[in-house]
């Protein structure tokens, strides 16, 4: 109980920084995820996050060889993640453009192959003398408990940068997601806009790895924005709500994971965001189940009334 109070009241400096960091991450994931969802590329984040795994392993091994036993430097592991993640996305695009394979099949290929490669590399790392692969598992399942305040700052700053870019290019990305050919017609380079959007997804996915884990980081991109759609018909409001839900579930999940022993934070964050999704699904004021039931009943009554008249 003491422990619980200490965590929730954010007495420790470290806890406070970590909570702020994951809040920023949740916000950024909600924002970026909204645009990915509307661009119909929601699962690209999944392919990307799975594709980061071999990069993390390779970075870990290389660093282990160069600096003996120092394989756990977060910036090094994350740069490895960026390289192989981007490579994975390029593979998906190449397969889609050069063959007749559809995008979903291409993503299925890339995410399973890259993740398989990563799993094999992890097996090798476990056999390497003197190395401890325990740090890697945090990237698979998410472990906010292992975050230092430096890690949290890194995550928070990058998340805030992503949010800034998104605000700056809000109008352009809105047009890209709604009507690609019209965007081209009025002179915006859709290739450049797509690169910016994918870049943002890469950034938030990679910094989100440590908190949520690469298997479940997709949840933080999709669930908040999908939930937000139940509440509004305006893109601006949807982005705000998605950010709010993302931040809430990230913080809530991190706290639950800190309080309950043996629960990876990835799982708790996903379950928290699912709670938000369920609430939105039922009570959402635009498309929620309750409002739909009510409009349906109203229409039925009107028809009956007219039939009587």
């Amino acid at each position: 109980m003491q422990e619980l109070l200490r965590t929730i009241s954010l007495t420790d400096y470290n806890t406070r920084v970590v909570v702020l960091g994951v809040a920023a991450l949740g916000l950024a994931c909600g924002w970026v995820g909204t645009f990915m969802l509307l661009r119909k590329r929601a699962l690209m984040g999944d392919a990307l996050s799975h594709a980061t795994f071999p990069g993390i392993c390779v970075a870990f091994m290389l660093f282990q060889l160069i600096a003996d036993g120092g394989g756990k430097s977060l910036p090094v592991l994350l740069s490895g993640a960026v390289v192989s993640g981007v490579l994975g996305v390029l593979c998906v695009m190449w397969i889609r453009n050069q063959t007749r394979i559809k995008e979903d099949a291409a993503m299925g290929i890339v995410l399973s192959v890259f993740f398989g490669l990563g799993t094999a590399l992890r097996g090798i790392i476990q056999k390497m003398p003197g190395s401890n692969s325990a740090g890697l598992d945090g990237f698979i399942y998410g472990k906010t408990a292992s975050m230092t305040s430096f890690d949290a700052w890194l995550i928070g700053v990058i998340a805030m940068i992503s949010c800034g870019v998104l605000l700056l290019m809000y109008k352009e990305l809105k047009l890209l997601c709604f009507d690609e050919s019209f965007a081209k017609g009025v002179g915006f380079s859709t290739t450049r806009l797509d690169i910016v959007l994918m870049g943002l997804v890469t950034l938030v996915t990679v910094v989100g790895l440590q908190a949520v884990g690469l298997i479940l980081v997709i949840a933080l991109l999709i669930i908040p924005s999908a939930s937000a759609r139940f509440w509004t018909d305006r893109l601006g409001v949807m982005v705000l709500i998605a950010g709010l839900i993302g931040a809430t579930s990230a913080v809530g999940g991190a706290l639950i994971s800190a309080v309950v022993p043996n629960t990876p934070s990835g799982a708790t964050i996903v379950l928290t965001s699912f709670g938000c999704f369920l609430l939105s699904l039922i009570f959402g004021i635009r498309r929620g189940l309750m409002i739909r039931q009510r409009t349906l009943r109203k229409a039925q009554q009107e028809i009956l009334l007219r039939a009587k008249l």
């Binding site: 509307l38 119909k40 009025v186």
Partner: peptide, 19 residues
Amino acid sequence: VDWDFPVNALDVVTMGLYG
């Protein structure tokens, strides 16, 4: 285009001015 997109009529028309 996807007409389920979360924008209203005025938003869409305003897009004509984005260029």
